[in-house]
Design a protein around this nucleic acid. Structure first.
Length: 152
DNA sequence: GCCAACGTTGGC
DNA sequence: GCCAACGTTGGC
């Protein structure tokens, strides 16, 4: 079992939106970065723990707990000309981009970036690195446990 | 709105 | 294959 931090813009899909969805489950579409795709393809498995992170918003930080709820499959938005995530270069015979389902488990008090940086166990989290833009990042067991502890 | 960081594109 | 230009992300 692995642990992940997944970024979502709350304007697009907040933890509350995810909790309100059918079965509290949302399709994690729109990933257009090869490293993040490879995590989904090669490493992420149903049941993996997810820190639901709000990005590009007034209060960025961890806003909830979720879990991976499906195996990877082709992201339909890549073939939809109406979608902002449309990728005309992706061949339907071998889709370039993947998605998986994420089940929201609970909302938590927001754990902000400053609080994360100030915690010695969390300072090395990839999401805190300067210039980090990766929307899916691995989280260590120690980081996961500490965050659950702090959000308990 | 600014700007650092980084991935992608495309000319050569 | 190199690398400069460009676009995007995302915190501040």
């Amino acid at each position: 079992m692995n642990y992940w931090l997944m970024k979502s813009e709350p304007d697009e899909c907040s933890i509350d939106d995810a909790l309100a969805a059918a079965a509290s489950t949302v399709e994690w579409t729109g990933v257009r970065n090869y490293q993040a795709r490879n995590f989904m393809r090669d490493v992420m498995r149903p049941g993996d723990g997810v820190l639901f992170y709000h990005s590009s918003c007034p209060q960025p930080g961890i806003a909830g707990i979720a879990e991976i709820a499906s195996t990877p499959r082709p992201d339909p938005t890549q073939f939809d000309p109406q979608s902002p995530y449309h990728d005309p270069k992706s061949d339907p015979a071998s889709p370039r981009w993947l998605m998986l389902k994420v089940r929201a488990l609970r909302r938590t008090p927001l754990l902000g970036l400053a609080e994360m940086r100030a915690d010695p166990v969390l300072t090395d989290m990839i999401v805190l690195r300067r210039g980090n833009r990766l929307s899916i990042t691995p989280v260590t067991g120690a980081q996961w446990r500490r965050i659950l502890e702090r959000l308990a």
